[in-house]
Amino acid sequence: MSHEVKNRSPLLAVNHLSVDYVDPPHPPAAALREITFTLQRGEALGIVGESGCGKSTLMLALMRLLPAAGRIVAGSVRLDGVELLDLDEQTMAALRWKRIAMIFQGAMNALNPVRTVGEQIAEAIRLHEGVGDRRVLARRVGELLDLVGIAANRRDQYPFQYSGGMRQRAMIAMALACSPDIVIADEPTTALDVMIQAQILQLLADLRRQLQLSILLVTHDLGIVAELCDRVLVMYGGVMAEYADADTIYNSPAHPYTQALLRAFPDPTRPAQKLAAIPGAPPRLNDLPPGCRFAPRCPYVFARCHMAAPPVYAITPTHSAGCFLVANPQGGAA
């Protein structure tokens, strides 16, 4: 049993979550396998991995918002001990945004173009808190916009009248509207220029301290994670590569993929560049060879890696990694 589970009951506990994308007559794509992690109150967990490794899929699965082709085939998602995957659709809907809110990848299209920003924020408050009074709503919306650094009098403008950075701020204000326990931020800064990226991340860091938010921050940028997160989950091709404290990840990474990632980002305080430095491409999920998903690109690959998928080994109670080298550091040489 891991250390957290014993001592404090986590706010969110995800266990062995697996997701398929079906596309008959083709075999289903194993988009997520056996994802296990916890999120404590006030904790910020970074989810890191290349494009297509299933980060968004994981976040959508947590909120049960997968697209039609997505199937949760196994696992459990518990929020304060309540199994979310067992709730009926209505209860789940009532819990969305109230307990878990989400800032989407690419806020350009995440706001409805034909309704004002204020209306869209007020809608969440009206729905979850039953506030109907226009003046109260207007005041609350104004406060929220103020919180994210937008002048309250811009609430009656439409998204197209906002700049990209402001739209992302408005999205954050909307996520905070019902004081959720958890905010999921799925690559909140992609498509923004570097200056604005830094501002948005600073805003998230400030809000987190101010409101004691629990944050799930998805990114493929290790620099961002270093600045903002307590713990890090590194994903590769739909499976867990490594899960540990941010310090451990940076100072003693156990998984070859994490190590490669860090080499691609020599200076974690300077984000921006992409993960192109790792040779090869992520696996095709509907046509997986047996064995470790990282094997085709792994510099330490040995015979056993091609025969079976490595389990997730606990190195210390707070550090685990899915690689045979953890159990057998000599690898093929042994």
Binding site: S2, N15, H16, T36, A74, G75, L85
Partner: peptide
């Protein structure tokens, strides 16, 4: 969906 009993990493 089937729920596995063990929530801890192997």
């Amino acid at each position: 969906r089937r729920l596995p009993p063990d929530p801890a990493p192997s």
